[in-house]
Design a protein around this nucleic acid. Structure first.
Lengths: 190, 190, 190, 190
DNA sequence: GATGAATGAGCCTTCATTCAT
DNA sequence: GATGAATGAAGGCTCATTCAT
């Protein structure tokens, strides 16, 4: 028998991302994805249980890559500020150079499919970062505010700025990114 | 006669918003919207050119309402900080009490339909607010950063925090909102 | 608006019967039925909830016609023998001249769809005949056996003989039918 | 090796019968049969030319078993009546204890596949019984009617009564079976 | 021999839209 | 203006069968 071809599975996921970028989440049908991936529609159902599974798997895979990129060279021994801002810079770098992945996640996250993913599975990858924020709070370096609040002010502006659909006029130059990270820090520092 | 028209048109828009909330953007078909609005599918095509027009119109109407809510009692004569934070508070208040409208816009904005709306038409409503930010920069009250950057740090955290899909654990209490606005101000103030 | 077209609904049912005769129950798809009826597949779903509904409705309609044909000129005042045999003759006459309807019901009855029909709805049409059999038992004209047994020996042989698929060599001449009815009577008479 | 073959082949046939009983002829696909039999779909095509061949083979195998069961201990030297009724009793006994086989044949016989089987191959197994009927006719013990007619009145009622789908209210007790066989004999005896 | 991967065709159903009243 | 009927195209998915190991 033939062996399951991981290359083929990846091709399907890549085609999914590409197609969603081109024609949007709503219009991306299984057969179009299959055509783009160069496989039969039926083949997709060998690798994924159904359309939902395909989309959720694609999302989780992207999010996992993103998490790894953000947490790369994360060093809790650095000064809190430096460690946190490094993550933001990583975030910017990754999204900038993988905008098509980013588009997919944005469309996915704002769809009912989003309710199907296990958030914990993703968030656990940021544990060291979360711990560091808490440490900053404990050390009275960071404001004593709910975690979600701190996180939102730290990373959401950059997360949004990097999205051309939301900010078509923004130029994500290194200078601007640095500016943004400084502003983020000003927001949360005590 | 005129009155009757608008009632029916509004019913369709309301049904659109409600349905997108319930079953999502992807699954909301014209016939389902018609059924929910209590009209014939054909009737929708009297008021809207096609499905795209219906969705875009719904989006613009919501965004217009949102803009009005934000800019309500906006007073450029107040201290810059107070005026800007007031807008943020308005934003929070409106979204909190109209979450179904908010969900629609989030799904819409992350779809290819978003590219069809004239952004200027919406942004012009915020002109006074934008001008005030620029004034703050000129007066060296606010950091000298690109406008998009300032705007993002001012309002995006709250815009995201208020979305339960993104922050299911966040409690949008008045205290937290005030905290958030203060952090936003710390981010942009000089 | 257009008015619902009963002619169209009948065309669909007729096409269903015809197609099942030609290619069998298993191969009769909704789109083939639509093509045969000269309508769009989608049109079928205006008149029937789904494929199951189409098949069940077709079945019930045929069974109703069959019941009417059998019970036509049924006369409980005739001698029991004559009245019961008349029904058998009617059965034979109807099936012979509507074999395509008969084929459909045979295929339907031996499929899981059969479990979906309300048997009572059909059987009630034979009430007078059932009553007469009971009367025959009470009058000691007919054997004192369970109703199902009497019924089976009265009408099942002819029901089967008339089916070319089961009895390709049998010639359903009037003489043979009369012979069969006499044998049926011999079976049940006291 | 040879043994293993037949085990697998039988497993497939058993799975076919079981599945048809559970979900019906229409819904029984090759892959589902394979899964139920614990083999690969491809394996089925080693033992059977195609789906049609699988179904027809299954049918013939069942019919052969049924024929053997009916003709077991058939004794042409007994009085005609006794010999014929014994076969009926055997028929009842076999079907009662192998209802799942019976269901399959009913669904198969009322499908286009039925036209593909060589009837002679099956009927030849009943030769002694057929001969005995003819003998009864010649000896003026049995009515002088076409063979099909005699056969239908002898065995079809019981064949139908034993089918719960057709007679859900009938209790196939030994007493009822004896009653039925007597009625059958009354129908055909001179 | 035996397998699971692979497939184009087809399944049932719903889509966005238009027609006729 | 307003409607439900009507539709070809497309939706997600499974089919019977073959391929490559």
């Amino acid at each position: 028998m033939r062996v399951k071809d991981e290359i083929k599975q990846d091709a399907v996921i890549e085609a999914t991302v590409a197609l969603v970028n081109e024609i949007g989440f709503v219009s991306s049908s299984v057969s179009k994805i299959a055509k783009r991936a160069g496989v039969s529609p039926a083949t997709i159902y060998i690798y994924f249980k159904n359309k939902e599974d395909l989309l959720v798997s694609t999302y989780i895979q992207i999010k996992t890559c993103l998490a790894q990129a953000i947490m790369e060279n994360f060093d809790a021994n650095l000064p809190v500020r430096d460690a946190l801002l490094q993550a933001g810079t990583n975030l910017y770098a990754y999204i900038s150079s993988h905008s098509e992945l980013f588009y997919f996640t944005e469309q996915f996250a704002n769809s009912p499919y989003a309710d199907l993913v296990n958030r914990d599975e993703i968030e656990i990858q940021f544990k060291p970062l979360f711990d560091l924020i808490q440490y900053g709070v404990d050390q009275k370096i960071i404001k004593d505010a709910p975690f979600e609040l701190l996180f939102a002010h730290l990373y959401l502006p950059i997360f949004s700025l990097v999205n051309p659909r939301m900010h078509p006029d923004f130029k994500a130059t290194p200078e601007n990114i640095e500016l943004s990270m400084n502003m983020a820090w000003d927001a949360i520092k005590l």
